[in-house]
Design a protein around this nucleic acid. Sequence first.
DNA 1: GCTCGTACTGCAATCGGTTGCGGTCGACTT
DNA 2: AAGTCGACCGCAACCGATTGCAGTACGAGC
Lengths: 337, 337
Amino acid sequence: MTKRPTMSDVARVAGVHKATASRALNPLTSGQVNQATARRVLAAARQLGYTPNATARSLRTSRTHTVGVLIPDLTNPLFPPVVRGIENVLFPRGYTALVANTDNEPDREAAHFEALLGRQADGFILATGRRDHPLLVSAHERGIPAVLVNRGTDDALYPLVTGDDPAGMTAAVDHLVALGHRRIVHLAGPAGLSTGLRRSQAYRHAVAAHELDARLVECESYTADAGERAMVALLTEAGERPTAVVGGNDLIALGALRAIRAAGLRCPEDVSLTGFNDMPFLDELRPALTSVHVPTHELGVEAARLLLEQIEGAPAVAKTISLPLRLVVRDSTAPPS
Amino acid sequence: MTKRPTMSDVARVAGVHKATASRALNPLTSGQVNQATARRVLAAARQLGYTPNATARSLRTSRTHTVGVLIPDLTNPLFPPVVRGIENVLFPRGYTALVANTDNEPDREAAHFEALLGRQADGFILATGRRDHPLLVSAHERGIPAVLVNRGTDDALYPLVTGDDPAGMTAAVDHLVALGHRRIVHLAGPAGLSTGLRRSQAYRHAVAAHELDARLVECESYTADAGERAMVALLTEAGERPTAVVGGNDLIALGALRAIRAAGLRCPEDVSLTGFNDMPFLDELRPALTSVHVPTHELGVEAARLLLEQIEGAPAVAKTISLPLRLVVRDSTAPPS
DNA sequence: GCTCGTACTGCAATCGGTTGCGGTCGACTT
DNA sequence: AAGTCGACCGCAACCGATTGCAGTACGAGC
């Protein structure tokens, strides 16, 4: 294992000073160098197999062409496509995305954030938004470029790219009402997350618009287990059994489905069920799950674009970009029997 | 936005030379500094909110505490848990995992690899193994630490952590035979991937052991679409219809399930079906898919451990660690009717 | 023939840490 | 009292690039 050649090596071979080599190698400054000289440098670089040391460059320029992507849970199928969207924008522009999993733990998130900051990330894309998010406040104070995706914060400090949750939720409720349902329950995502809150509020509005009563159980997290627990609780509660359940996301709905079956009920005959996010393979389920489709790839693409704008000097305007959602009706919703 | 404090700032506040500050701040060298002085430095650092500049440190030490993780397809549910396993080992040891998606494209993989190398990654974990993998040869020549996970290469240059595919495949075939199946087909993963090849070979051995004929269709990729196409092709072929299908992985099996249904057949009554990998939510399917469980998290954990060993100086022994697999029988397999 | 401008290139500082080496000083040995 | 030894700390080089500034050379202009 012989050491990698440095720019000084290239300069020596080409018979120039390393400063000249630097200029020749950089497309932006190569105009300052004699064409013939530049060619000599390029040839020397190729011959030696020179690759620039990004660390040294970063130290000098304090730009790393690296962005941190903080994901609350990579095993939630919502997020991988978002990551791909982000990468598809970043990579061609010479940026690398550093993806980190926070497991929904603020401590872990903070640790990752600091680690990435120490590695001089040029900016951040956070899918980990909680409504109250001290990390973001301090980041904003330090002037760090960032964009939120999917989940927002209460104080808008940074741009947010998200799906149009209210419209999606309204579409789901309207669909159930059109089928004839009157007792529609919402298994809500955590109220500490903007999506949980927004969807809950939209649910309340939507049922109110049909003059129905709202009934809502909050899940501790966006997971199947939490959804199952909430549904079990709901089924053992007093009062009339609901005929339709609106899940805060698909995982919650899957958990609910388990509970419904465990209680000896059938879906959709006894209980209709909808999810949210339209994660992959929902139509392989039986019943195939009706869900609200979220353009995850686009979410990532837009977020990456906004971040690049900021990195390149645009101020961090806290605008919200909300992308349209679409209800995908499958087999888990049917008229009440 | 005021600049981050540097070590010189800390040193000035503490009234020492920056070299002393450096030693005081580093737990490994803090013994070389008077306790009282060290405390002063620590206090100054805390007061200023000092965080070390990892870039500068890396430049000097040529260690970045960063490892590149190359994943062929993050949207394949097999991989996110592997990534978590990797992170769970790396993070507590002060390493950051840089996850990159290669979309199964060698060019994209090479680009990511070079980019990460330019950023001085200390090592790599590759889940992108193809049996012929030029990138790895050159990496090995350059003495770069790396570990393969899940998929291997023909020439063993690096350690490989993988599931015991032959045992898993044998268990699946034995299970089908025990149910009474005689015409068992394998929808194989790409033969260009070690897992595809290994599982195919194991399939051949397993059916031969029961004195049955092997029949095998290779899918172009480990995706549901490829599986569906292969199954359609199989069903339109001449000859007796198989009573059982062994998918090269779960996605292929899902695609096969689509084709089976589209052909008006039922699973498991007309055709039994097994998957491989046991990705999440398989038991929410109807029929719940019988599959071979792979300890994905453990795969990541082991790979990360091996990589750390290498980074810390152990030679890159091309040993293979193979973790036991377990057949999970669900509802998609039944005796032939 | 002298000045001026232009094109090119080299010098050296700089980014923010790490580390080998050497110097100072007090305590301890003999 | 001289010598020895550690403990502690500072000096300065170094990692590999980028970049402001200055210097050189050469041609053009007058």
